[in-house]
């Protein structure tokens, strides 16, 4: 036992070691953009409470080409979030048993993505209805 001297390897840069971990970190990084979008909306609500002129300024800011470009990127990042959220779903939710058989993971992912597509379409349709 005198010679027992274990070697502990460093965890530095662990997430670069495997493509699986790079995808994981990309998934986690979407959180920064979810926060950024929520703060943009919060700013909008605060400006709304300050009156028409203030809210107009907030709207003008959104029409800035940089803002449009940022929101196009945000849209893609949110879509990645949706995809990654439902892809891990079969592992994070309790098993679903249908007719005595466990629902396969791919089916759970597909159902989640379908639910997101329907919810998003319904939301856009609702906004269009408000506008009409």
């Amino acid at each position: 036992m005198a010679l027992r001297r274990t070697y502990v390897r460093s965890m530095d840069g662990w997430w670069r070691r495997d493509p699986f971990f790079i995808h994981y970190m990309a998934r986690e990084a979407t959180a920064v953009f979810v926060v950024a979008y929520a703060l943009i909306l919060l700013a909008g609500v605060i400006r709304l409470s300050q009156g028409e002129a203030a809210f107009g300024e907030w709207l003008e800011g959104l029409a800035n080409p940089w803002s449009i470009a940022f929101h196009v990127a945000l849209c893609a990042i949110f879509a990645y979030h949706t995809w990654s959220w439902f892809r891990i779903m079969p592992k994070t939710m309790p098993p679903v048993v249908v007719g005595g058989r466990r629902l396969p993971g791919a089916a759970i992912t597909a159902l989640g993505l379908a639910a997101a597509a329907i919810a998003s379409a319904a939301f856009v349709a609702f906004v269009a209805w408000l506008a009409s």
Binding site: V34, Y37, H71, L74, C75, F78, A79, H81, T82, W85, F86, G112, A115, A116, A119, S120, A121, F123, V124, V127
Partner: peptide
């Protein structure tokens, strides 16, 4: 956000 995020950003 997974269900509605992208649609919200779009709108």
């Amino acid at each position: 956000s997974a269900l509605l995020g992208a649609a919200l950003v779009f709108v």
